[in-house]
C-alpha cells in the first residue's frame, strides 16, 4: 500500500525562481496494483517516481509505504529507467546480480535466483553475454530482471519502453504483464503512450502540467490477462478517449483561449 498525501515538490531553478513540479498530489495505491501515469512532458511524472523512491525529498506533504513514511531510499523498491543502464563491463548475469552485490546480499542461491529471473524474462542462454551483444529490447528485459532480483514489493518504471521500437514495445508490454502475473508487485509505470497505459493498468493516473497535478484517475474495466485484441473493445476505446480528452482537451481549450 502506497499512500501519497497532498504531496508537493518545488524546485529552485538556476535564476532563483521557484518551479512547482508537483502540486497537491494525493493517491492511494493498493498492493499488487498496476498503476500507469500518463501526461504531457513536464507534468512531473518522473519527479513523482523519484519522490516515491525516496531519491528526492518532498517540499510538502508525505508518502508512506505500508504505513511507514518514506524519508530516503529504501531497498524494497526496484527501479527501471528509459535506458537500460546496464554495466558494460559485466555479463547479463552479473548485471542482474548487481543490486545484491551493492547491498551485500549475495548468497549461495543468488545465482540460481538470477538465472530463474533471466529465464522468466526470456533471456535464457544470454547469461554470459555482455550488454552490447544484446538488442535494446533484450537489454531492457535484463534491466527488469535486475530490478526484480531484490524481490521488491514495489516496482517503479520510468518510461521503460520509451526507447524501443513500436513492435518491440508491444511485445515487451505483454511480457511485463506475464512477469507481473508470476511475481505480483505494486507497479508505478510512467509512459507517454495512451494505449500502453490502458493496456497495462488497473488504473491510469492522468496528469496535467504546470504545475504537475492529477487531472483524473481512470479505472480500466478490462479482464486479465490482457492482450491487444482488447484494443477493439468499447471499454478500451472509452478509456483512451477519456485520457485523450483530459490531455489534449485542456490544451485545445487553452489554445482557443490564447487565440
Amino acid at each position: 500500500m502506497i499512500e501519497i498525501d497532498r504531496l508537493s515538490k518545488t524546485f529552485r531553478s538556476r535564476d532563483g525562481a521557484d518551479v512547482v513540479a508537483l502540486k497537491n498530489i494525493s493517491l492511494a495505491v493498493r498492493d499488487h496494483e498496476f498503476i500507469t501515469l500518463v501526461g504531457a512532458s513536464g507534468c512531473g511524472k518522473s519527479t513523482l517516481l523519484r519522490l516515491v523512491a525516496g531519491l528526492l525529498p518532498p517540499t510538502a506533504g508525505a508518502i508512506s509505504i505500508d504505513g511507514k513514511p518514506v524519508s530516503g531510499p529504501r531497498r524494497d523498491i526496484g527501479m527501471v529507467f528509459q535506458s537500460p543502464t546496464l554495466l558494460p563491463w559485466a555479463t547479463i548475469l552479473d548485471n542482474v546480480l548487481f543490486p545484491l552485490k551493492l547491498t551485500h546480499q549475495i548468497t549461495e542461491g543468488s545465482r540460481e535466483k538470477a538465472r530463474h529471473l533471466i529465464a522468466l524474462a526470456g533471456l535464457s542462454g544470454f547469461e554470459e553475454k555482455y550488454p552490447k551483444e544484446l538488442s535494446g529490447g533484450m537489454q531492457q528485459r535484463a534491466a527488469i530482471c535486475r530490478a526484480l532480483i531484490t524481490e521488491p514489493a514495489t516496482l517503479l518504471m520510468d518510461e521503460p519502453f520509451g526507447a524501443l521500437d513500436a513492435l518491440t514495445r508491444e511485445e515487451m508490454s505483454l511480457e511485463l504483464l506475464r512477469i507481473w502475473n508470476e511475481q505480483p508487485k505494486t507497479i508505478l509505470f510512467v509512459t507517454h503512450s495512451i494505449t500502453e497505459a490502458v493496456l497495462l493498468a488497473d488504473r491510469v493516473v492522468v496528469m496535467s502540467p504546470r504545475p504537475g497535478q492529477i487531472a483524473d484517475v481512470i479505472d480500466v474495466p478490462l479482464d486479465r490477462p490482457r492482450n491487444f485484441d482488447q484494443e477493439a473493445r468499447s471499454e478500451f476505446q472509452d478509456c483512451t478517449h477519456r485520457i485523450r480528452e483530459l490531455i489534449f482537451g485542456n490544451r485545445a481549450r487553452r489554445t482557443a483561449a490564447v487565440a
Binding site: R75, M79, L87
Partner: peptide, 29 residues
C-alpha cells in the same frame, strides 16, 4: 556515468565508496 545509474546505486543506498568502486571507476576505465 549516466545519472540513471547513479540513481540506481542511490536507490539501493550504496555508499559513496561503493558508488566510486562499483560504478564510477569501472565506467571511467
Amino acid at each position: 556515468v549516466p545519472s540513471d545509474l547513479i540513481e540506481l546505486g542511490r536507490s539501493y543506498r550504496a555508499s559513496r565508496f561503493q558508488e566510486l568502486y562499483r560504478i564510477r571507476l569501472p565506467y571511467a576505465v
